[in-house]
């Protein structure tokens, strides 16, 4: 069973989507480690190391995702889990920006996949399957 670490990054306390993601991923046979809301990059990374996770799935809903996600890939590399899959989704930036540009910026930061607002977690499942080699 593959392990996925989920949580809501930064000073963000939107809790509902996190619970749904937890539920959906479990239903689809993943071992979920949920670090919850208000989580730092370190919280995600530490949990991924100890649980031998294959993926970290970051949620950001309140608009400051870009600030909160900076340097996360570098920290993973430093912590010895540089190869881990990094996903991010929710409402990752403020307002209505051109999503292709937003996506580009997050890919540059080292995220493997970046999801537009209103992408339900179900739409994410085929990508997870593919990326985890299932």
């Amino acid at each position: 069973m593959k392990t996925i670490v989920i949580g809501v990054i930064g000073a963000d306390c939107h809790a509902v989507g996190n619970k749904i993601i937890d539920y959906v991923l479990r239903e689809h046979g993943y071992n979920v480690v949920n670090v919850g809301v208000l989580s730092s990059q370190e919280d995600f990374i530490n949990a991924a190391i100890e649980s031998n996770a294959s993926m970290i799935l970051v949620s950001s809903l309140y608009g400051q995702g870009e600030l909160d996600c900076r340097g996360m890939r570098e920290k993973c590399v430093e912590a010895g889990i540089g190869d881990i899959k990094l996903y991010v989704g929710g409402n990752i930036v403020v307002g209505k920006q051109n999503f292709d540009e937003v996506k580009e910026r997050f890919i540059k930061m080292g995220f493997d996949r970046v999801f537009a607002p209103n992408t339900p977690i179900e739409a994410d499942l085929p990508f997870i399957k593919e990326d985890l080699g299932e």
Binding site: T3, N31, V33, E50, S51, N52, A53
Partner: peptide, 8 residues
């Protein structure tokens, strides 16, 4: 070291 099923 490692959660159950985690890093071994």
């Amino acid at each position: 070291g490692g959660t159950d099923g985690g890093n071994s």
